[in-house]
Structure formats: structure tokens, C-alpha cells
């Protein structure tokens, strides 16, 4: 159990301040375009992050809004490449954040299961094997052959969670997802996460809920202004988080 699943070494990541550069050309034409220094255009979203997460560990990350929690998960998932440092991840990794998984609106639920499966690198045979389980779990069998655009937000969330959790990831990244769907589905998804946690999956959870952290995590880190400020002891992370709330 001593092998690393996720190894993050001296990682730093810059993020643009102004996300959408929609006005760029207009500014250029109206002559208001000026060269803005790099430090005004970018900010350090993550700085000097060092983390070593072992296989099978369940790690929580807490911090105030804007501290870089979601960004850190995206770096682990490979979505953002670090500007400095090195990220190494071993095993199949899935990130579950909010609702939906980038569904195609015009395809049916079933076709989206196949598409998502292939995005995560499964071949057709193993996707077919998983399909029935996913449909059962989502609880929306009667609508599975309808296009996604006819689904309600709750139905999309159910399907999204059903697919991701059934892909049997080696590493599961959860970003504030315990509050999806109705009460019944929430209970079901919580049970499913518990199952994955109890299995050999490595799990990283971002949440504001102390009770989730306490009941599930082996280690909890506090994140502040893009830096890890506590040593992994759940108690010290809670202490830090409480003090931030003031």
C-alpha cells in the first residue's frame, strides 16, 4: 500500500485574470490596446504544491472559495498542465465536478454512455458490459433512448454520476458532488462513493462539509491562496478552515 497513486512535485500554475478575451480585437481597433504586464494578466492560482497520495488513500481538500481547490483537482486530472513542477498519476482517473460530463445534446442517453466510455479509454466491449449497470443505477431507464436535450437538470446529473462512478476508476476526484439529485439519489450516490472508498480506489474530495471529511478521509489538507497550509492531519485542517470562516 506504499505505492504512490498521485505524486505532485513543486507544482505552480498561472491562471488568466480576465478569462474571456472577447474585447481583445475591439480594444485593438479603438486604440485602447496597451501592453499589460504579465503579472496583471495572470495570477498564481497554485504555488509550490507538494503532495504524495498513496494508492487507496482518501484525501480531502478544504479551503475558502477561490483558494484553488478545483484548479488543483484539474491539475491532478491532467486538464491543466502545470507551469512549473511535475504531476504524475498512475491509473485510470476520473473527475466528477458539478453536473453532466460534457454530454452531447443531440445524442440519446445510451449513445452518451458509449461516448463517455470511449472518452475515458474503454473499448466497445467493456462499454457494452457496463451499459446495463449504468442505466439501472441512473434510474432513468424509460428515457435512456431520448436525446439528452429533453432531460431535466436532475436527470443529467443522475446519468453523469451513474456513468462516472461505474467506470471503476483507480482514482476518483470529487468536486462538491454530494449535493446532486433528490434525497433518494443522494443517498444512493453517497453509498456508491463509500463503496469506492472502501475498495482500492484512491479518492480526492473537495468539499465544504466537515462531516463528509470526517467520515471518509484519511488525510485532510487546507488550501489557502493556492498553497497547502496544513500537514494533512484532519484536525489541523478543520482548525484552519474554521479560522478562515471568521
Amino acid at each position: 500500500m506504499n505505492e504512490s497513486a498521485i505524486s505532485i512535485k513543486d507544482v505552480a500554475l498561472d491562471y488568466p485574470r480576465k478569462k474571456k478575451g472577447v474585447g481583445l480585437l475591439r480594444e485593438f481597433i479603438t486604440g485602447r490596446f496597451k501592453k499589460i504586464p504579465r503579472k496583471d494578466r495572470w495570477f498564481r492560482a497554485l504555488n509550490g504544491i507538494n503532495l504524495d497520495i498513496k494508492k487507496g488513500e482518501v484525501v480531502g481538500i478544504m479551503g475558502p472559495n477561490g483558494s484553488g481547490k478545483s484548479t488543483l483537482l484539474r491539475v491532478i486530472a491532467g486538464i491543466y498542465a502545470p507551469d512549473e513542477g511535475l504531476v504524475e498519476v498512475e491509473g485510470r482517473i476520473t473527475l466528477l465536478a458539478g453536473i453532466g460530463t460534457g454530454f452531447n445534446q443531440d445524442l440519446t442517453g445510451r449513445e452518451n454512455i458509449k461516448l463517455t466510455g470511449s472518452i475515458f479509454g474503454f473499448d466497445s466491449k467493456s462499454i457494452n458490459d457496463m451499459e446495463e449497470g449504468i442505466i439501472d443505477f441512473s434510474g432513468i431507464r424509460e428515457f435512456i433512448d431520448d436525446p439528452i436535450r429533453t432531460y431535466s437538470a436532475g436527470m443529467r446529473a443522475r446519468l453523469g454520476f451513474a456513468i462516472i462512478s461505474n467506470l471503476e476508476p483507480d482514482i476518483l476526484l470529487l468536486d462538491e458532488v454530494m449535493s446532486v439529485g433528490d434525497y433518494e439519489f443522494r443517498k444512493k450516490s453517497r453509498a456508491r462513493i463509500d463503496e469506492l472508498v472502501q475498495g482500492d480506489a484512491t479518492v480526492v474530495i473537495v468539499s465544504h462539509s466537515k462531516s463528509i471529511m470526517m467520515s471518509m478521509c484519511d488525510k485532510v489538507y487546507g488550501l489557502h491562496n493556492g498553497e497547502i497550509v496544513t500537514d494533512g492531519e484532519p484536525e489541523s485542517a478543520f482548525e484552519f478552515y474554521e479560522s478562515e470562516k471568521e
Binding site: P82, V89, E90, S126, E168
Partner: peptide, 14 residues
């Protein structure tokens, strides 16, 4: 199972 089983994802600044 899938094609990417046991793959190592390595991302750095290079």
C-alpha cells in the same frame, strides 16, 4: 479492460 489501464499520466512544463 479498457485501453488506458495502468497508464501513467505525466504532465510537466516541457
Amino acid at each position: 479492460m479498457g485501453v488506458s489501464e495502468n497508464k501513467v499520466l505525466r504532465r510537466d512544463g516541457k
